[in-house]
Nucleic acid binder design. Structure first.
Length: 271
DNA sequence: AACGCGCCCTGTCCGC
DNA sequence: TGCGGACAGGGCGCGT
C-alpha cells in the first residue's frame, strides 16, 4: 500500500505526536507480524522512550535508543495514534501502551507488514543494502544513468527495485514515467542522458507533490490520525485505464509487468 | 549475478 | 443474491 510519500507522511505525524513519549507496554495480537521472537520483541520495547522517528526507504524507524523499532507496512499496514479509550479497529496486530493517555496501534488487514526490533548496528548493515533515497542530493541524473546502465530490465520494474532506488512503488513508478514521457517497457540501460534527467526530475517532483498532499489513498492508506491522503485526485495515469490522457486525450492503457499493473499513455510515452 | 515468478493474506469488485 | 476469478499500494525466497 504505502510508498515513500505515504510512509513519510506517517513518519512526520508520528514524529510530532510521540517523540519523547515512553512505551509502557506492548501486546502482540498477530504474532506472524513480528520478525523474530515475539516475547523478546514485547519485552524489548517495554519502558523505552521514543527518541525520534525517521524513514528509510518504505520503513518507519522508531528510535528507542540502542535499538530501532522498524515497521514495514506491506500493503495494508496502518500505524495509528489514539486515545486509550478510543474504539479499536478490526485486524489489530499490535498495541503499544504509552505512559500517557494514548496508544500506538498497528493494524494490518492482509498482514504483509512486519514489525521488528533491531539494534542500530544491525540496522546499519541492512540500510547499506538499500538503494539511494530519491529525494537526497545523491540522486543525480549522472548517478541514475550509471546505475541504470547496469540493468536490462524494463525501466518501470527497475524503478521499483529497492536495492537501486528506494521508496518508489507501483503507483509512483507509473506516474513518474508518465511525467518523464518514458515508455515503461524501455530497458533501463537504454535510457538516454536526457531521459535520465527527465526521470530524475519527474520522480522527485511526483514524490514531493504527493507528500504535500499527504499521500495517495486508493482504499486502505491512512495517516497516523486515520485520515486519507489527497493525492489520489492528482494521479494522471494510475488506475485510469481507458480514460483520456490529461495531455493528449489518448486512452490510458494498462499492461502487466512483473505481475503488477502498469498504466501509461501510448501516445505521450512512445517506445 | 541478475532476473522472473510464485507466494504470503484478506477483502472487494466484476461478470455471469 | 450467489459464486468464481481477478486484482490490490510490498517484499521475500526460490529456481534458472
Amino acid at each position: 500500500m504505502p510508498e515513500l510519500p505515504e510512509v513519510e507522511t506517517i513518519v512526520r505525524d508520528l514524529r510530532g505526536l510521540v517523540t519523547g513519549a515512553t512505551i509502557a507496554d506492548a501486546e502482540v495480537l498477530k504474532p506472524d507480524l513480528i520478525e523474530g521472537e515475539v516475547t523478546i520483541f514485547a519485552e524489548g520495547v517495554r519502558t523505552r522512550r521514543i527518541a525520534g522517528v525517521d524513514r528509510r526507504a518504505k520503513n518507519i524507524l522508531i528510535d528507542l535508543g540502542d535499538d530501532l523499532l522498524v515497521i514495514n507496512l506491506g500493503m495494508t499496514g496502518r500505524v495509528l495514534v489514539v486515545e486509550k479509550d478510543a474504539q479499536e479497529p478490526t485486524h489489530l496486530g499490535a498495541r503499544f501502551h504509552l505512559t500517557d493517555h494514548r496508544r500506538i496501534l498497528y493494524q494490518d488487514v492482509r498482514r504483509f507488514g512486519r514489525l521488528e526490533l533491531v539494534s542500530k548496528a544491525s540496522w546499519s548493515k541492512r540500510d547499506a543494502a538499500l538503494g539511494v533515497e530519491p529525494l537526497s542530493d545523491d540522486f543525480t541524473p549522472e548517478f541514475l544513468k550509471q546505475l541504470a546502465a547496469k540493468s536490462r530490465v524494463a525501466v518501470k520494474t527497475w524503478l521499483m527495485d529497492q536495492a537501486r532506488v528506494v521508496g518508489i512503488g507501483n503507483i509512483y513508478a507509473s506516474e513518474a514515467l508518465f511525467r518523464a514521457r518514458i515508455n515503461p517497457k524501455r530497458p533501463a540501460n537504454r535510457l538516454t542522458r536526457a531521459e535520465a534527467e527527465r526521470l530524475r526530475d519527474a520522480v522527485r517532483e511526483v514524490l514531493t507533490e504527493a507528500i504535500d498532499f499527504r499521500g495517495t489513498t486508493l482504499l486502505d492508506y491512512r495517516d497516523a490520525a486515520g485520515q486519507k491522503g489527497a493525492f489520489s485526485k492528482r494521479l494522471r495515469v494510475y488506475d485510469r485505464c481507458g480514460e483520456p490522457c490529461v495531455n493528449c486525450g489518448t486512452p490510458i492503457e494498462r499492461i502487466v509487468q512483473g505481475g503488477r499493473s502498469t498504466f501509461f499513455c501510448p501516445s505521450c510515452q512512445k517506445r
